[in-house]
Amino acid sequence: MARMHTRRRGSSGSDRPATDEPPEWSDVESDAIEARVVELAEAGHDPSVIGMKLRDEGVKGTPIPNVKLATGKKVTQILEDNDASPELPEDLRNLMERAIGLREHVDENGQDHSNKRALQNTESKIRRLVNYYRGDELDEDFKYSYDNAVELLE
């Protein structure tokens, strides 16, 4: 999500080159890439970390600049096909971890008003994401609460 709760503009980054096919120097079979993705997921890595590891380390020493171009599937699709997808979406999980840390900080430091506001903003983003994922990746009756988040992330 972009800068939802501030007046600042989002930070710009570099764009990937527009291309429809993987580079010729990265000629790894798609089956080997999918096996490496599943292996990294079973080691406990998130989909974004899997993409970075494939970019940096690659498969058998050959880097994979873009998994979707090389295999025709995104990392999350590969994980779903092999029943290795995480139980919570990665963005929701990261926001819940942030909210838990903020809640613990606010409990210890009650006068920290800026972090109280940050906790409110983070929890509102979580509720918005829960509404987005409800039914597809989350149960229909899932509701966010601090206790529920702590239980899910343990």
Score class of each variant (00 low, 15 high):
M1T: 12
A2M: 09
M4Y: 14
H5C: 10
G13H: 11
S14M: 09
A18P: 02
D20I: 08
P22E: 07
S26I: 06
D27R: 08
V28C: 06
S30F: 09
S30C: 12
S30V: 04
D31I: 09
D31E: 13
R36P: 00
R36K: 14
R36A: 14
L40G: 04
A41F: 02
A43Y: 11
A43G: 07
V49A: 13
G51T: 11
G51I: 06
K53M: 13
L54I: 09
G58Q: 10
K60V: 06
K60M: 08
K60A: 14
T62N: 13
P63K: 10
P65R: 14
N66D: 15
V67R: 00
K73T: 04
T76H: 05
I78K: 01
E80I: 03
N82D: 10
N82F: 07
S85R: 06
P86Y: 13
D91N: 11
N94E: 15
M96E: 06
I100M: 01
I100T: 02
G101Q: 07
N109E: 05
G110D: 02
Q111V: 05
A118L: 05
L119M: 05
L119T: 02
Q120L: 07
T122K: 01
K125H: 08
L129T: 11
V130N: 09
Y132P: 03
Y132C: 05
R134I: 03
E137P: 00
E137W: 02
L138P: 07
D141Y: 01
D141E: 14
F142E: 09
K143P: 01
D147I: 11
D147G: 13
N148M: 14
A149S: 13
A149W: 04
V150G: 01
E151P: 08
L153N: 08
